[in-house]
Design a protein around this nucleic acid. Structure first.
Lengths: 143, 143
DNA sequence: ATTTGTGCAAATCGTTTGCATCTGA
DNA sequence: TCAGATGCAAACGATTTGCACAAAT
């Protein structure tokens, strides 16, 4: 289930998101959390987030951005997106959903999961179970 | 469509695969091509392929392995696999199919595409068309 | 002969880590 | 107070690149 993010812009909500995840609401995490969890769902990289927080006048070191993104992911606040890229993309939408990938520029768009159904999956091998299914629909510009 | 690889082990077949792709059949490309296109479909990284070709006693520099893998991909002989990993994986099976990903060790298994059907995809945005759909089914060991 | 490919080492890029310092509970 | 968090710079691993040399048509 997705959180209602309509009011996430205020400090208190971000703070409780962090506390609920067992993370101390430090200045850096609050700043990053506000960028990530307030407003719409986002697809973002560490470098990009670092640039954003910096342009707000907040100082957060790049290493801390990396560390924080992984902490958020471990806490279930972010999900890593599987696309072929040398960079790691994180998605603030942790509910089941899938992606359109605009090939030429690498831009991502959400596809709501309830649209999509997958049939005919073979049984997983003995002793394994499906944890999650990722669907990436690659788009190219029509010529 | 998949090539019949049952006889790809001989020089002539590899050579014609390369020529058809517009690539000169150099010693290095032949050695890599034989490893990739003879026998079963494979999921491989540059480092791994370099280790293989080296252990055969052939000398191909790592840079050439990287360059060659990308040439093969551009020629449509390989496909890059979309998984979240710091390494780039290539698939010698360029037909439409999908993957099981064994989470703990990152191992990949093919799922034949004709098993799977995807319903309920929304229309792509104006001026875009679907080039390819990747499905990755993540597996974890049952506890 | 001319184009194309290769090897090597250095450069680059994204990311992680070690460690001294600082901060929140 | 003191575990936990951060910053910095150095380390790292995967990949790319520049350029002199070699091989293919």
């Amino acid at each position: 289930m997705d959180l209602d993010r309509s009011q996430n812009s205020d400090r208190e909500t971000i703070e409780s998101i962090l506390r609920d995840a067992g993370l101390r609401p430090t200045r850096q995490r609050m700043a990053l959390g506000r960028l990530l969890f307030a407003g719409d769902d986002r697809h973002i990289t560490a470098e990009l987030l670092h640039a954003e927080v910096t342009s707000e006048g907040e100082h957060v070191s790049l290493a801390t951005v990396y560390n924080t993104l992984h902490q958020f992911r471990r806490a279930g606040l972010l999900r890593e997106i599987a696309i072929e890229s040398n960079k790691t993309y994180f998605d603030t939408n942790t509910s089941n959903h899938n992606h359109f990938l605009i090939e030429p520029d690498g831009e991502l768009m959400d596809i709501q999961s309830d649209c999509i159904s997958i049939d005919g999956l073979p049984e997983p091998p003995e002793g394994m179970r499906i944890s999650h299914i990722d669907v990436v629909v690659r788009l190219v510009r029509e010529d």
